[in-house]
Design a protein around this nucleic acid. Structure first.
Lengths: 202, 202
DNA sequence: ATTGCTAGTTAACACTGTTAAGTAGCATAG
DNA sequence: CTATGCTACTTAACAGTGTTAACTAGCAAT
């Protein structure tokens, strides 16, 4: 019972925090609001988290894990490295589109927050990136891609995707441009950039 | 005299704000600190800015203008679209590397801030992007590139660059990866993606 | 019955953005 | 030469913030 309640309060805090953060943005977020929302004193949060930073880092961490899980699931279903790269790109993009607010928690909130992001969480967060690296390595071995350093290439791929998504999600896209068209073209462009240059097909 | 002093206080506020924002991050930034730093009451800031948002938006705006000016200068020196794209990419990158804090003001601070960014400033900020679009359009006309929609392609290019830079600047890069190598390879990769696929060279 | 731990509490500190009201200093008008 | 009004600020106050320290019910074990 006490065990359950202990977990329960922590979870309540996390859930309320996520909602608050997504509804009101980083700016409107406050520990006291979270506490009020679940009918508990603000200082109770300190029983389960070191402070505001720690709480937010936990949220970021959870969202990253969720995204990574989807990526891992997708990757396991596709053998061919290029196709795999493509489904990974779309999994990433769709995750961002379907869970814009969770995706934004990862990136939008974290910019200033990132300097304080603990290394131990950072390490776990890199699983998705390692999946990418393996895929590209595989492509290089099979001669389908010709990347010099798969580790760098993997970061490039990821950075490109992130850049594209952040343009869409932070509403920086010109209103005359159709979002879906932009995404499709941009992703195709990114994928093409990784495919080995054949001296064939027309 | 009164004219000069009016301008002078506004400028003092801007300068102090920029320094504070860059030294202490968005989190450590406060109007009261800015005011203290220039020996004036906090409310005086409201004589020149509508509030914290407006002040920060002004900083963002100025940094964007500075970057855009550099891009425009660079672009005018290069005729060939592909080369032009390359020098633009490096101008962008170098600006970010040489003025990381000004670059970060543009992007890092703005994520949460962006929803409140006024449209009128947004319009001015797009000049750099329009330069890109023209370059790509030019490349398409000359048959060196084969982008379907230069406007979208331009955004893609910009988003990719931004993604790459943000990975570097927000310290998300794996410490085993050399930053310069990453940038060179990533940018080359992005440029390559825009160059038309020739059915020749080896 | 008392000790000690758990899971919370209240009170307080030093901050924050923002608004309302007040005030020196000066320029012009009568 | 006084009075009005404007400019460029200030002080006081409000409602909020993260965080720390000290306290306290309720329960478990000695």
């Amino acid at each position: 019972m006490s065990e359950e309640q202990k977990i329960s309060l922590r979870d309540k805090i996390i859930e309320a925090s996520r909602n608050l953060l997504l509804d009101e943005g980083y700016r409107g977020f406050s520990l006291r609001k979270v506490a009020r929302k679940i009918g508990v004193s603000a200082t109770s949060i300190y029983l389960h988290f070191e402070g505001k930073d720690d709480l937010i880092h936990t949220l970021i961490d959870e969202s990253i894990q969720k995204l990574n899980a989807k990526l891992a699931e997708t990757a396991s279903k596709e053998e061919d490295p290029v196709e795999r790269l493509e489904v990974l790109a779309w999994t990433y993009t769709n995750f961002a589109l379907e869970n814009p607010r969770e995706y934004l928690i990862i990136y939008v909130v974290s910019s200033d927050e990132m300097t304080r992001y603990p290394k131990e969480k950072f390490r776990k967060a890199r699983q998705g990136y390692e999946l990418l690296t393996e895929t590209i390595e595989d492509g290089v071995i099979k001669g389908i891609m010709d990347e010099e350093d798969p580790r760098i290439a993997s970061y490039t791929f990821w950075a490109q995707l992130h850049g594209v998504m952040s343009v869409v999600l932070t509403k920086r896209l010109d209103s005359r441009i159709d979002q879906t068209a932009f995404l499709e073209q941009a992703i195709q462009h990114i994928i093409d950039g990784f495919h080995v240059r054949t001296s064939v097909d027309k």
